[in-house]
Protein backbone atom coordinates (compact mmCIF):
# COMPACT_ATOMS: atom_id res chain seq x y z
CA UNK A 1 0.00 0.00 0.00
CA UNK A 2 1.12 3.58 -0.72
CA UNK A 3 2.31 5.53 2.31
CA UNK A 4 0.51 8.63 3.46
CA UNK A 5 2.65 11.13 5.37
CA UNK A 6 1.94 14.71 4.40
CA UNK A 7 -0.10 16.05 1.52
CA UNK A 8 -0.19 19.61 0.21
CA UNK A 9 -2.74 20.21 -2.50
CA UNK A 10 -5.88 21.82 -3.81
CA UNK A 11 -9.05 21.04 -1.92
CA UNK A 12 -12.30 20.69 -3.88
CA UNK A 13 -15.61 21.52 -2.16
CA UNK A 14 -18.51 19.06 -2.49
CA UNK A 15 -21.03 20.32 0.07
CA UNK A 16 -23.69 17.64 -0.57
CA UNK A 17 -24.79 15.38 2.27
CA UNK A 18 -25.26 11.61 1.87
CA UNK A 19 -22.98 11.31 -1.18
CA UNK A 20 -23.42 7.59 -1.87
CA UNK A 21 -21.14 5.04 -3.49
CA UNK A 22 -23.40 4.88 -6.55
CA UNK A 23 -22.64 8.58 -7.09
CA UNK A 24 -18.92 8.07 -6.51
CA UNK A 25 -18.69 5.20 -8.99
CA UNK A 26 -21.86 4.01 -10.77
CA UNK A 27 -22.38 0.28 -11.17
CA UNK A 28 -21.55 0.09 -14.87
CA UNK A 29 -17.90 0.55 -13.88
CA UNK A 30 -17.89 -2.29 -11.35
CA UNK A 31 -17.46 -4.88 -14.09
CA UNK A 32 -13.73 -4.51 -14.12
CA UNK A 33 -11.51 -7.21 -12.69
CA UNK A 34 -8.73 -4.69 -11.98
CA UNK A 35 -8.26 -2.01 -9.33
CA UNK A 36 -6.83 0.64 -11.63
CA UNK A 37 -8.16 3.03 -14.24
CA UNK A 38 -11.39 4.06 -12.50
CA UNK A 39 -10.46 7.74 -12.03
CA UNK A 40 -11.97 8.77 -15.37
CA UNK A 41 -15.31 7.42 -14.12
CA UNK A 42 -15.25 9.07 -10.69
CA UNK A 43 -18.65 10.76 -10.04
CA UNK A 44 -19.52 9.77 -13.62
CA UNK A 45 -23.23 10.59 -13.62
CA UNK A 46 -22.59 14.00 -11.99
CA UNK A 47 -19.51 14.79 -14.05
CA UNK A 48 -20.82 13.87 -17.51
CA UNK A 49 -24.17 14.25 -19.27
CA UNK A 50 -25.97 11.47 -21.14
CA UNK A 51 -23.81 12.15 -24.22
CA UNK A 52 -20.60 11.84 -22.23
CA UNK A 53 -19.87 15.58 -22.28
CA UNK A 54 -18.53 17.25 -19.17
CA UNK A 55 -21.05 19.05 -16.98
CA UNK A 56 -19.25 22.41 -16.57
CA UNK A 57 -20.83 23.18 -13.17
CA UNK A 58 -19.56 20.03 -11.50
CA UNK A 59 -16.71 20.90 -9.17
CA UNK A 60 -14.08 18.53 -10.57
CA UNK A 61 -14.74 19.85 -14.09
CA UNK A 62 -13.95 23.44 -13.12
CA UNK A 63 -10.44 24.49 -14.15
CA UNK A 64 -9.44 25.33 -10.57
CA UNK A 65 -10.21 21.83 -9.27
CA UNK A 66 -9.15 19.49 -12.05
CA UNK A 67 -6.02 18.61 -10.11
CA UNK A 68 -7.62 18.52 -6.67
CA UNK A 69 -5.98 16.12 -4.22
CA UNK A 70 -8.30 16.75 -1.27
CA UNK A 71 -12.09 16.56 -1.17
CA UNK A 72 -14.15 18.46 1.42
CA UNK A 73 -17.63 16.94 1.74
CA UNK A 74 -20.95 16.94 3.58
CA UNK A 75 -22.02 14.46 6.25
CA UNK A 76 -22.38 10.70 5.75
CA UNK A 77 -20.00 10.62 2.79
CA UNK A 78 -19.65 7.22 1.09
CA UNK A 79 -22.93 5.73 2.28
CA UNK A 80 -24.33 2.74 0.47
CA UNK A 81 -22.49 -0.21 -0.94
CA UNK A 82 -19.24 -1.87 0.11
CA UNK A 83 -17.69 -1.42 -3.35
CA UNK A 84 -14.00 -0.66 -2.94
CA UNK A 85 -14.22 0.70 -6.48
CA UNK A 86 -15.28 3.96 -4.74
CA UNK A 87 -11.91 4.59 -3.03
CA UNK A 88 -10.10 3.08 -6.05
CA UNK A 89 -11.75 5.68 -8.30
CA UNK A 90 -11.03 8.52 -5.86
CA UNK A 91 -7.38 7.56 -5.60
CA UNK A 92 -6.98 6.97 -9.31
CA UNK A 93 -8.34 10.46 -9.93
CA UNK A 94 -5.57 11.76 -7.67
CA UNK A 95 -7.42 12.45 -4.43
CA UNK A 96 -5.63 11.13 -1.33
CA UNK A 97 -7.60 12.79 1.46
CA UNK A 98 -11.34 13.20 2.09
CA UNK A 99 -12.62 15.50 4.84
CA UNK A 100 -16.22 15.32 6.12
CA UNK A 101 -18.29 15.67 9.31
CA UNK A 102 -19.04 11.92 9.10
CA UNK A 103 -18.46 8.91 6.85
CA UNK A 104 -20.27 5.66 6.24
CA UNK A 105 -18.52 2.83 8.02
CA UNK A 106 -17.47 0.51 5.18
CA UNK A 107 -16.27 3.32 2.93
CA UNK A 108 -14.26 4.79 5.80
CA UNK A 109 -12.48 1.45 6.33
CA UNK A 110 -11.94 0.94 2.62
CA UNK A 111 -10.10 4.28 2.37
CA UNK A 112 -7.42 3.21 4.84
CA UNK A 113 -6.81 0.01 2.87
CA UNK A 114 -5.91 2.11 -0.16
CA UNK A 115 -3.66 4.80 1.19
CA UNK A 116 -6.44 7.38 1.38
CA UNK A 117 -6.85 9.36 4.60
CA UNK A 118 -10.50 10.06 5.57
CA UNK A 119 -10.71 12.80 8.22
CA UNK A 120 -13.71 13.43 10.45
CA UNK A 121 -14.06 17.00 11.72
CA UNK A 122 -16.85 18.91 13.48
CA UNK A 123 -19.28 20.57 11.06
CA UNK A 124 -18.01 24.08 11.92
CA UNK A 125 -14.45 23.16 10.96
CA UNK A 126 -15.60 21.43 7.77
CA UNK A 127 -17.57 24.60 6.94
CA UNK A 128 -14.38 26.66 7.37
CA UNK A 129 -12.40 24.30 5.10
CA UNK A 130 -15.30 24.33 2.63
CA UNK A 131 -14.94 28.13 2.47
CA UNK A 132 -11.21 27.74 1.91
CA UNK A 133 -11.84 25.16 -0.78
CA UNK A 134 -14.29 27.48 -2.57
CA UNK A 135 -11.26 29.66 -3.30
CA UNK A 136 -9.95 26.99 -5.68
CA UNK A 137 -6.32 26.94 -6.70
CA UNK A 138 -5.64 29.72 -4.24
CA UNK A 139 -6.74 27.39 -1.46
CA UNK A 140 -3.87 25.03 -0.89
CA UNK A 141 -4.33 22.88 2.20
CA UNK A 142 -1.67 20.84 3.95
CA UNK A 143 -2.58 17.61 5.74
CA UNK A 144 0.08 16.27 8.09
CA UNK A 145 -0.77 12.77 9.32
CA UNK A 146 2.18 12.38 11.69
CA UNK A 147 1.20 15.53 13.62
CA UNK A 148 -2.53 15.14 12.89
CA UNK A 149 -2.96 18.70 11.65
CA UNK A 150 -4.57 20.48 8.71
CA UNK A 151 -3.12 23.85 7.76
CA UNK A 152 -5.29 26.19 5.73
CA UNK A 153 -4.23 28.88 3.24
CA UNK A 154 -4.38 31.55 5.97
CA UNK A 155 -1.84 29.63 8.03
CA UNK A 156 -4.38 28.60 10.66
CA UNK A 157 -4.04 25.01 11.83
CA UNK A 158 -6.61 22.53 13.14
CA UNK A 159 -6.00 19.10 14.59
CA UNK A 160 -7.84 15.87 13.85
CA UNK A 161 -8.24 12.44 15.42
CA UNK A 162 -7.19 9.19 13.78
CA UNK A 163 -7.08 5.61 15.06
CA UNK A 164 -3.50 4.90 16.17
CA UNK A 165 -3.23 1.53 14.41
CA UNK A 166 -4.67 2.86 11.15
CA UNK A 167 -2.33 5.84 11.35
CA UNK A 168 0.65 3.55 11.83
CA UNK A 169 -0.35 1.46 8.79
CA UNK A 170 -0.85 4.55 6.59
CA UNK A 171 2.38 6.26 7.64
CA UNK A 172 4.36 3.13 6.87
CA UNK A 173 2.33 1.83 3.95
CA UNK A 174 1.82 -1.50 5.74
CA UNK A 175 -0.05 -4.43 4.24
CA UNK A 176 -2.77 -5.70 6.60
CA UNK A 177 -2.47 -9.30 5.52
CA UNK A 178 1.25 -9.33 6.22
CA UNK A 179 0.60 -7.94 9.72
CA UNK A 180 -2.11 -10.49 10.45
CA UNK A 181 0.09 -13.34 9.20
CA UNK A 182 2.46 -12.50 12.04
CA UNK A 183 -0.33 -13.53 14.43
CA UNK A 184 -1.11 -16.79 12.67
CA UNK A 185 -0.42 -18.79 15.86
CA UNK A 186 -3.36 -17.02 17.55
CA UNK A 187 -5.60 -17.87 14.62
CA UNK A 188 -4.45 -21.51 14.68
CA UNK A 189 -5.19 -21.88 18.37
CA UNK A 190 -8.55 -20.11 18.06
CA UNK A 191 -9.51 -22.46 15.25
CA UNK A 192 -8.50 -25.54 17.29
CA UNK A 193 -10.51 -24.41 20.30
CA UNK A 194 -13.53 -23.53 18.14
CA UNK A 195 -13.42 -26.94 16.48
CA UNK A 196 -14.03 -28.39 19.98
CA UNK A 197 -16.59 -25.90 21.27
CA UNK A 198 -18.54 -25.29 18.04
CA UNK A 199 -17.77 -28.31 15.86
CA UNK A 200 -20.80 -27.65 13.60
CA UNK A 201 -19.16 -24.53 12.23
Amino acid sequence: MDKFTTLTGIAAPLPLINVDTDMIIPKQFLKTIKRSGLGVNLFDEMRFDSEGKEVPDFVLNKPAYRNAEILVCGENFGCGSSREHAPWAIKDFGIRCVIAPSFADIFFNNCFKNGILPIVLPQAEVDKLMDDAERGSNAIITVDLENQTITGPDGGSISFEVDAFKKHCLLNGLDDIGLTMEKVASIDSFEEAAAQSRPWV
Binding site: N114, I177, T180
Partner: peptide, 21 residues
Protein backbone atom coordinates in the same frame (compact mmCIF):
# COMPACT_ATOMS: atom_id res chain seq x y z
CA UNK B 1 -22.93 -10.23 9.64
CA UNK B 2 -21.64 -7.27 7.72
CA UNK B 3 -20.29 -6.06 4.40
CA UNK B 4 -16.59 -5.61 3.68
CA UNK B 5 -14.51 -4.12 0.89
CA UNK B 6 -12.38 -6.09 -1.55
CA UNK B 7 -9.15 -5.62 0.46
CA UNK B 8 -10.94 -7.16 3.42
CA UNK B 9 -12.28 -9.95 1.20
CA UNK B 10 -8.67 -10.79 0.41
CA UNK B 11 -7.78 -10.53 4.10
CA UNK B 12 -10.52 -12.99 5.05
CA UNK B 13 -9.64 -15.36 2.21
CA UNK B 14 -6.01 -15.40 3.39
CA UNK B 15 -6.46 -15.38 7.17
CA UNK B 16 -10.14 -16.21 7.92
CA UNK B 17 -10.11 -13.13 10.17
CA UNK B 18 -10.90 -9.43 9.98
CA UNK B 19 -9.12 -6.58 11.72
CA UNK B 20 -11.89 -4.95 13.71
CA UNK B 21 -12.70 -2.70 16.61
Amino acid sequence: AHGIGTSEVEHVLATQTLIQK
